[in-house]
Simulated assay, not measured.
Amino acid sequence: MHPKNLHNTPYQFKKLIEVHIPLAPFVHTNEFGNSTIDFFNPNAVLELNKALLKLHYNVTNWSIPTNYLCAPIPGRADYIHHIADILNKVNINTPVKGLDIGVGANCIYPILGSQIYNWKMVGSDINEVAVASAKQNVTANTNLVDAIEIRHQKDNANIFAGIIKSNEKFDFTMCNPPFHSSEKEAKKGTQRKLKNLGKQASELKLNFGGMANELWCNGGEALFLKRLIKESVLFKDQVTVFTSLVSKSNNLTKLQKQLTKLKASYFIVPMEQGNKKSRILAWKFND
């Protein structure tokens, strides 16, 4: 993880339970004598997130609708810290304004950006339920109200258009694109995880939840990112640096070729959390 990520150390379950008692029933001692939870239990993950947000990020009222993505906070915080490094690399100073494409019902990236770095954040999503939930998470916490704005993308043919206002400037955009190309593919991925953990197929469930627009889309990650890059050209005068997670490394070659063709300068930032490897693709258009 990023050296500034406070989740580099094991979860402080005693302190987490002190600030959020509903987490307590889900905490147990494993065979190594360490406190933990069952990360394949969505209720346990939900209560852990609530506790983490209370203890570390001063967010006391947070929830998501049933079956929506319960994003693991440590990995999300990593992306935020790497963006801060990218902003330093391209000489962006405070105050900072960022746009999260696909904010989701959880609103995690804008929350972390505002609470860790005091950034002003805008989050957009095409799903009305997700937008309503994200707005509720903002309005339920007085420290978020002036820092975060949630906008509804009403046209699924657009990503930035209809969200970025005329003459509006952003220092960066970020995105955690849908990983899979279909629900079937998403379930197969979960089955592989369960098999690796020695669990039965009957236990199949996406432990972090997730609706269609959060986990899969037509063409999967590769097609979505191609669309994102293509549309970014239209907003090159309003955004300093565009970024996105790229989960599948074999998608990079085509994306790099596309950026080169569009005369964008780009760089890749590796990310690693435990056994999971990912990367951030960042690009900008020179003046």
Results as ranks from 00 to 15, higher is better:
32 F>D: 14
116 I>K: 03
13 F>E: 13
168 E>L: 07
205 K>E: 10
240 T>M: 08
188 K>L: 14
279 R>V: 00
160 F>E: 08
77 A>L: 15
154 K>A: 14
114 S>Q: 09
148 I>E: 04
103 V>E: 01
266 Y>G: 03
135 K>I: 04
136 Q>V: 05
165 K>S: 10
150 I>R: 05
112 L>W: 07
137 N>P: 02
253 T>R: 15
65 P>S: 07
259 L>W: 01
247 S>W: 02
20 H>Q: 01
110 P>C: 03
212 A>Q: 13
147 A>G: 03
283 W>I: 06
238 Q>I: 00
191 Q>V: 06
61 N>C: 08
63 S>E: 15
1 M>K: 11
45 V>C: 14
106 N>P: 10
137 N>T: 07
128 E>D: 11
44 A>S: 06
208 F>K: 12
174 M>P: 06
200 Q>W: 09
160 F>D: 08
24 A>D: 15
30 N>R: 11
257 K>R: 14
152 H>D: 04
32 F>N: 15
90 V>G: 03
57 Y>V: 02
47 E>I: 05
278 S>E: 14
156 N>W: 09
117 Y>L: 08
242 F>M: 00
269 V>W: 01
147 A>Q: 12
100 D>S: 02
184 K>L: 13
30 N>P: 12
246 V>Y: 07
101 I>W: 04
74 P>M: 09
28 H>W: 15
251 N>S: 08
68 Y>Q: 01
257 K>D: 14
265 S>A: 12
216 W>P: 07
79 Y>S: 04
221 E>R: 10
100 D>G: 04
280 I>A: 00
49 N>F: 09
172 F>T: 05
3 P>V: 03
